[in-house]
Amino acid sequence: MWKWLHPYANPEVAYQFTGKLIPWFNGIAFILLSIGLFLGLAYSPADYQQGETVRIFYIHVPAAILSMGLYFAMAIAGLSALVWQLKLAHAAIAAIAPVGAAFTAIALITGAAWGKPMWGTWWIWDARLTSELILLFLYFGVIALGNAFEDKSQGAKAVSVLALVGVVNLPIIHYSVEWWNTLHQGATVTKFAAPSMAMSMYIPFVICFFGCAFLAGSLICKRFQGQVLARNSLRPWVKQLALAEDN
């Protein structure tokens, strides 16, 4: 059943394959984001309560979803690194972590910017923002731990363990923060009541989300290529590649 996956576990094949994906991902991300943002920023209606500020939602929510999703993806890579000793998963973790952290930061900054007109202050200990902040700490932990090791593969294994521990804790942290928030602030206005989203908002949102996802995919592929090269610098095919580049 898994046989067809086998050739892709070869670093060289994986390098070539991701190399082919990047232009496609870039193109799709560019098209989707152009359409989605145009629809979102220009065509979709303003919210009757929040006015124009609601439009930040087309960046904020996709970034927030991706920040969680990428952490999850990193944990899956960690699992395959530990259980199946997959060396490429090491490169994948190192590729995903900074991209995930960047999306978390985007979610935090846009969240704060959205909060300013709504709450009158840049930062409020709202449940979602607090969760994102803690998620950012988790990402920083993963990145810092990976950098701290001299030996790359040892670092990657350590990071795999940490990512798995983190992903188990993530829901616990999320729910405890949410509960803590209701405890201390009473019923805060949740930023958006998701189910009753109008179609005219929903479509641009979905397009933006996939645009962001493909953008993340392209960034990760590019980083993954770099990581694969760094981790296989002794292999002949990497040397050939470097020579070809020089000429």
Binding site: G141, A144, L145, Q154, A158, L162, I173, W179
Partner: peptide
């Protein structure tokens, strides 16, 4: 995770403190 590192101290708190949040809450 940090025992093999020479400067594990600050890194340790970065790794662990976020995980302590639910208990603290």
């Amino acid at each position: 995770l940090t025992v093999a590192l020479k400067k594990g101290g600050v890194l340790l708190s970065l790794l662990i403190l976020p995980l302590y949040i639910p208990v603290l809450i």
